[in-house]
Design a protein around this nucleic acid. Sequence first.
DNA 1: GGAACTTTAATTGTCTGACATTAAAAACGC
DNA 2: GCGTTTTTAATGTCAGACAATTAAAGTTCC
Lengths: 248, 248
Amino acid sequence: MKIDPQNPADLSAQIASAIRDAIVSGALIVDQRLPSEAELSEQFEVSRPTVREALKRLAAQSLIRTQRGATGGAFVNRISFEEAYSQQITTSTLLLSMNAVSFETACEARYALERACAGLSAKRRTADHLATMRAEIHRQSQPGLTDEAFCASDVAFHRALVDGAGNPVMSYQLAGAVEAMQPLMNMITFSARDRARIVAMHGDIADAMTQQDAAAVEAGLTALEHETQQLAIHAFAARSAAKQGSAT
Amino acid sequence: MKIDPQNPADLSAQIASAIRDAIVSGALIVDQRLPSEAELSEQFEVSRPTVREALKRLAAQSLIRTQRGATGGAFVNRISFEEAYSQQITTSTLLLSMNAVSFETACEARYALERACAGLSAKRRTADHLATMRAEIHRQSQPGLTDEAFCASDVAFHRALVDGAGNPVMSYQLAGAVEAMQPLMNMITFSARDRARIVAMHGDIADAMTQQDAAAVEAGLTALEHETQQLAIHAFAARSAAKQGSAT
DNA sequence: GGAACTTTAATTGTCTGACATTAAAAACGC
DNA sequence: GCGTTTTTAATGTCAGACAATTAAAGTTCC
């Protein structure tokens, strides 16, 4: 580390990259203090604002944290699952919304991955997970619920299912897949009948989880995927029809 | 957006957050130009360096890109799958290496998710995917290969399997799970016999893919998971034994 | 001698103002 | 009308300064 070619462009990006490599490679370990900004600017032969921009880049990725004061400075940060979750959700959400990923593709990926949890989750789920699922099912049955709140509850239900696997790595990987679907789901209007069907399916899945019947959980998820895909097809058909109508 | 409480701390983080929210919520759309740094510093009533630090934070997350010159500025960036991949891999890798996640947990998550691809991938894989898998199997059989190169080839094999599903969202979500395992795998020394067994299993999986036999692909992955877990147990047992020996 | 208070020093956070670099648009010459 | 030059608006970088914060060292008082 600490070397920097005299490339003309974007010194702060180069410095950030050098420090990032040092962290990823293990040359800088967790909680280790980086040199002060003044020292870094000497080492890299740049000004302090440039060093600061590099450090902010790393802070944005939760690779470092900073403390003020006499013994302050920049420290290599231990990335928590929480931080990793929220980063993944932001990236996944934007990736889907910006790249014209079809609802079908995103939905397929989500349910395929979620089915991957079914086996472990059916086996390991605790009473807490079951209680959360039941509570969300109950919330979803409330009549006055907005579509948005319905979708949020849907996400919470599925997160409980995923967390039931008791594998934090899996929960982390799935967070993006499940949460990023929410904006897409929000584009759908759920009729009372649609909601009733979904709630029933959630009930079936919760029952299967209670009985630790992995195959039934998978089957329930597959049924739910099919239902969701159908709803989306109708919603988008209706939407494009309305567009046609207003255009003519 | 554009509001900013007079909270004392970390103005650049607040500004970055405000702009990020505007992008995520859709108030700022792809390729839209942000106000110039000078204008932003007026709007937020801070200096230009502070605005710049905020913009660098966003650039680090690929939310914006900047261009110099007369018509330059900061533009909302369309996050590409490529960028999202590499971000996910960095975050996942650090998450695993920094949080003392057991090999067992990471391995379980990885294979569970990979099995989720098996069905789609068996059905949709093209000749290209099969060819890549065969090529990597061949490379893995080379005698002079370093452990690191063997692991890299292993990753390439599995990525081909995942990509075979033809679902870019799934490939993206799996990238982290598969690649982040590599540093952990690199801690294992593969004997010639170990490698032969793994290569044989890869061959079985490739055969199943060729025949589009989803169940066989899943079975092959399960067998491979078991083999990997066993190898890891022995490797870590040997390692801790060596540690004991050197300590006394 | 010990506890409470004060001072000091180191570090990040922010500001001001300036200059360099870049790239597109405008002006100019022919 | 086309090629060249100039202008201009923007980011990239720098230098120097001050404010805010925090921990440690020093000081005072009991």
